[in-house]
Amino acid sequence: MIGKLFAADLLKTRRTGIWWVVLIGAAGLAAMQALNFGLRYDYLVYDTYAADPWGGLIKETSMFVPIAVYLAMTLLMGMIANIENRQNSWKQTLALPVRRSEVFASKLLCCLVQLLAACVLLAASTAAVGLLLGFGGPLPYLDLLTLGFYPLLASLPMLGVMLWMTLTMRNQAIPISLGIAASMVSVFGASMPEILPLSWPMLVVRGHETLRFVGLGIALFAMLYLLGSIHFSRKDVA
């Protein structure tokens, strides 16, 4: 059933421009670093990161990944929810022979697929930038992939909140404002106490106990997802 729902949800994203967000978000981050390295090539490549230019590129890029991931979650979930919210199509979708929990799961899947696509695109475009900059040697595949992937996992609690808020709230201004505010604050994640989930993606990026915060992110997300799903399944559809 979830496969059918997902297929329907994918069709609904057609012509919404949602995939452009994925593309521009990921490629934009890489383009920014192309500019950064292009302008300060000698300083960055021959001086600061002379020993490991690939590592340097990835490190410079990674500083912007947490804010990008938070913004992407907010924007993508906002757009996904908007498809149903705009003409209040919930009453049509939920009057179909489907489980509410599966509808909820399908929306999550939709967003996750887009975020994962963005991660892969980020890895590919960052690799392209590195090659264009003339970094030789073997490509650091693993580091390129985890560049987006680890912060994404550590940011999952935010997706849990966004998923629930955008799909259950009439007033989309609330989740979107909250999402943007959180994105801004996440930049200073490294100087926040680690009990705040907002700090996790930045801590992961800085290489502090990466797997611990990835695990915490997944665990907290699972809890939030469950609560959101229960609420979504029980609430009255106006």
């Binding site: 059918k4 729902l5 297929a7 329907a8 069709l11 609904k12 057609r14 012509r15 919404t16 498809i83 705009r86 003409q87 209040n88 199509s89 919930w90 009453k91 049509q92 979708t93 009057a95 179909l96 022979p97 489907v98």
Partner: peptide, 26 residues
Amino acid sequence: SLVEYPSYYGHLNAVENLETIRRILN
């Protein structure tokens, strides 16, 4: 069912609108 004013996906055409439902109803 059709509840109150119609629900539709404005960015899609009629066939695509129905296809979103067809995929679920199989």
